[in-house]
Every structure is written in C-alpha cells, then in structure tokens.
Amino acid sequence: MKLQRTNRLRALAAGALAVSGALVLTACGSDDNTGNGGAAEKAVNNIKCDGQGNLLASGSSAQKNAMDVWVRNYQAACEQTQINYKPTGSGAGVQEFLQGKTAFAGTDSALEPGEVKQSKKVCKKGQGIDLPMVGGPIAVGYNLPGVEDLALDAETLAKIFDSKIKTWDDPAIKKLNPDADLPSTKIQAFHRSDDSGTTDNFTKYLNSAAPDAWKYEPAKKWAAKGGQSASGSSGVATNVKQNEGAIGYFELSYASGNNIPAVALDTGAGEPVEATTANASKAIAEAEIVGKGKDLTLELNYQTKAEGAYPMVLVTYEVVCDTGNAKETLPATKSFLKYAASEDGQKALAEIDYAPMPDEIISKVRKTIDGLA
C-alpha cells in the first residue's frame, strides 16, 4: 500500500541574529566580586531581565535556530544584555566551556564522566551540569527529484551511511518503497566533519535499532567508512540540497528551512513515522532522568515501536556550573536560561520545528536554574 503522508515543511520564522560589539567574558569560577554591575532587575513582556553586559556561549548547531529566536526575543526585552551564541558544534562548545571561555555551552550529548571531572576546575566548589532545554527529531533529508515519499528503516539507513548500499534502486530500498519510482542514481551520504552531538545521537539510534548493521560505537566523531563530510548541520543541509542523490542528517528545522524532504522511519509500528515535532515529543516523553544531583541527563528510548513515536531524536542540553559561575555573568545567565525554560520560551520552539520539553522535565529544569550560584 502506498505510503500516504506529506512532509510538513515550512519556512522558518527566525533569521540569524547579528550581535555586534566586543565580547568580554570572565570564566566560570572567577574571583571577581563586582556583582552584576548594578543593573536593575526588571520584567518586560514576561521576561525577567537581570544583569548586563556580554554573554558568550557556543556549542550545538542543532539548536542554532532556537537560540536565534530566544536571543532575539530576550534582547528585545533586555537591552542591557548582549548574547552571542556561536554554533561551533557540541564538542567544541563543551571544550570552550571547560576552558572557562563561555558562560554556558550547548551540547546534544550529556557531559561524559571525564568532562564532569574537568569541569570541577572551572566551576569552583561545583561542577558542570546538563539542563535539557531543546528537543526535536533528527531529520534524514534527501535529494531525489520525483520521489516525494520515502520510508527507510534503521538497518537500511545504517547500510547507506556505511557505504554498503550505494544506489537508490537498491533492493532493500525498493522493498520499503514498492510504489516509488526509484532511480539508479548514486547515493551521496553526507555526515558531519566536526565533533557533533547530532552525530552522537544519530549513531546511538543506528547502534540501538540496528546493531547487526551498525557496528560502530556511538560517538560525536564520525566513525563509518566512506561518505562525504561537511561542517555543522547547515553544511550538511546545504550539500544535500545542492547534490542530486544526496542524503544527510540534521535537525528538522534545517530540512524545513531549506525545503528538503525528510525520510519517514519504518520503526515496526503500523505505519512509517514522519519526522515531526509532535512525533518526536512522543518519543522524548518516554525518556528517563538518569543524572545525579542537579544534573538532568536523560536516557532516550531509541527502540520504541509506539504508534506515531519518532525515535531518532536528540535533546540539547545547556551546560552550566551548578555553583561557581562567574558573579559578573551569573545574573544574566540565569535570566536568559529562565526565559528559555519558561512557558513562552518553550512555546517558541514549537513554532520553528523543535519539540518543547515535557512538563515534568522542564519543571525540574526551571527549579535547577533558580538554584544556580
């Protein structure tokens, strides 16, 4: 039976935000006791402004479009604070945070034990913690003119990205798409060249859902053979859009913003599942908090077969010090993160193809932010 579905793609409402001026930031754990410079705390349009000056953050490119909207909305209300978020990739963002260069980092993979240990040198009398703030599906976008509806399962995806399946008319793809007119076009599989939390979550899905086909350990660094690489989610999306026969993985908003069709996942449920925020939310709702203390690391269920649950998801964490944040940047950091975790901040995510955190998770995030010191 022909798969009946429509890729729900729409243009993003938010553009990139340019932030000017010099960037000056003292690392977490500073001994400076000047406070927030005397800026008055105020609330504007439901955003509670506090602190002033420049906040520098970096990391996950998957959350760039969410950050653009959050920063735009926050700075419209809080003119005394300038926020510059650089989408350098999860690995680079975590390293900059651990080097004391940023107020917080964005990462699509929770801190590893060694990174937590290292963070104790930066977070005086504390450590780095993971705050789940952004969720969403990892879309597998493709460029195959004439093929509007494409379904793939984890095993087939694993073989495509491991260069085992090399043309679009391969029997394995035909079996999943019997009514599609599949060409003999060569497959060009694009992956991330930089250390990436999106890669980590994508390979966690493949390793968990298709362990016989994907033998590589999940990691931020791409390990499979062959394929072509590009920097950042935007780089992968650009290459998929420009090259016929291409396929690549990136956060859903990059598919929507570039009008790239996305694969539906054959999970073993009754029907293949589309990459939508609603379907991703169904999968994220099955996650469990496994972090210790104030850390809110989640464990995702990549093997779910629940109807309408899209299991190839990622959660982006904002990494901060639980205690030992720089006193001159702490008020603005808390103020900005409070907005991002607020009802308004989370609502903004759903409007640009991200999945807001489930209530029981985001309520704990808000409480933890309140207690940052």
Rank of each mutant, 00 (worst) to 15 (best):
N73P: 00
V44T: 08
E79V: 12
G35Q: 07
A62V: 13
N65E: 07
I83P: 03
S30I: 08
I83G: 01
A92M: 01
A77V: 03
N36D: 15
T34N: 08
W70C: 03
N65T: 10
A92D: 13
N45H: 10
K64M: 03
S90I: 08
P87T: 07
N46F: 05
D68P: 01
A77M: 08
S60Q: 04
T34C: 00
S90P: 02
G38A: 08
K48C: 07
G37E: 05
Y74E: 05
K42D: 10
G35F: 08
S60Y: 03
N36H: 06
I47Y: 09
S30N: 08
K64Y: 11
Y85I: 07
P87W: 03
S60K: 02
M67R: 07
K42Q: 14
N45A: 15
N84V: 15
D68C: 03
A39Y: 12
N84T: 15
Y74W: 09
D32R: 09
V71K: 03
Q75T: 15
K42G: 00
M67W: 12
E41V: 13
S61K: 05
C49K: 12
G37A: 12
P87D: 04
A62I: 06
N65K: 12
E41Y: 00
G51M: 04
N33S: 11
N54F: 14
S90V: 04
Y85M: 09
V44Y: 13
M67H: 14
G51E: 04
A77R: 01
S61A: 14
D50G: 09
V71P: 01
G35N: 11
P87I: 02
K64H: 12
A40I: 05
L55G: 02
K64R: 14
A66I: 04
A77P: 05
A76G: 12
S58N: 10
V44H: 13
Y85N: 07
D50T: 13
S60I: 09
G91A: 14
A92Q: 12
R72C: 00
T88A: 10
S90Y: 08
A77H: 06
Q82L: 09
G93N: 07
T34Q: 04
T34S: 13
T88H: 01
N46C: 00
N73H: 04
D50C: 04
G89W: 04
G37T: 11
Q82Y: 10
G93S: 07
W70I: 05
S58W: 07
G35R: 11
S61E: 02
E41H: 00
Q82S: 15
K86N: 10
G59E: 05
N33C: 00
N45Q: 13
G89A: 06
K86L: 14
E41M: 02
W70G: 01
D31K: 13
L55W: 06
A76F: 09
Q63Y: 04
G38T: 07
K48D: 09
D68L: 02
N73T: 15
N73K: 11
Q52H: 07
